[in-house]
Nucleic acid binder design. Structure first.
Lengths: 140, 140
DNA sequence: TTCTAGTTTATAATTATTCTAAACTAGAAA
DNA sequence: TTTCTAGTTTAGAATAATTATAAACTAGAA
């Protein structure tokens, strides 16, 4: 029971922490993003389908775009680098790496400790390194 | 003089090697991509502008899309991983790395020998590693 | 030189995203 | 508890990148 109360607070905190007033719609979006056993990759479209499939009343796409963008800026979501022409997000915000299949264009996670770097360049003047990720392109 | 003849042959070869018949339009596109002193990043739009700015007769966008895609599939160009929603290409096909500025969303090359990896995972079953690239996200 | 499979083109269609402005609501203050 | 307003949601329009279409054109084999 306390678990659920804490989860609810967690969601409210994430919303407030992203500069967002906790509205009905945003709470529903946040539950779908953060109340999961596993992290996952998604697009605006797939998130929208996930939400409406559950029989929830549907949320306007504009709201989903705005909320996901705010969570991303606040660091609760991470935008994935791809060569596709739509945005992919990851609920796994810990530094980690990806396999990128050039055939299927699918991304899968690589555990952080599977990759080790022994040399990394300095950031350009006036900038600092925020995070480093390795993309391994694979094919058949 | 032989230099120019060789360049021309090189372009014809790249086109044939991409399964493309060397037409006037494709040769012009290829010259703009491969006859440069330095490698560079581009989008379909920037390539199109580059071509028409020189006073060349303009080439249909569809042809530019098709030709760039064929060169990419043949391995003469590389698609860049970004979080933007349009396609970026690199004429530098050698394995190399990028800084990705989250503020300006700009990509800059990192020389290959500036990064060293001491541990890399195996490719998933049935796949092989084609290439590996490190993206270092930077910010102010 | 002829012929045809392959190519180019303008334009329409599609898809992802952003914009807009009117209707709605969270939550501070009375 | 009610009122009020800044912030929010929404449907639909606008924009931008890409892909599809089908008619006119052309490289290059015969």
């Amino acid at each position: 029971m306390t678990k659920f109360i804490n989860q609810k607070n967690d969601i409210i905190n994430k919303l407030r922490g992203s500069g967002l007033r906790p509205t009905k719609q945003r709470i529903l979006i946040a539950k779908n993003l953060f109340e999961n056993n596993r992290t996952f990759h998604f697009t605006i479209d797939s998130l929208n389908k996930k939400i409406s499939k559950k029989g929830n009343e549907k949320i306007s796409l504009a709201t989903i775009y705005n909320t996901v963008e705010a969570f991303t800026e606040a660091g609760y979501l991470k935008e994935i680098l791809t060569s596709k022409n739509k945005s992919y997000y990851d609920t796994n915000i810990k530094s980690h790496h990806h396999f990128y299949d050039e055939g299927t264009k699918e991304l899968t996670d690589i555990n952080y400790n599977q990759v080790k770097l022994s040399k990394v360049p300095m950031a350009p003047k006036g900038k600092k390194i925020k995070n480093l990720e390795v993309v391994i392109r694979i094919q058949k």
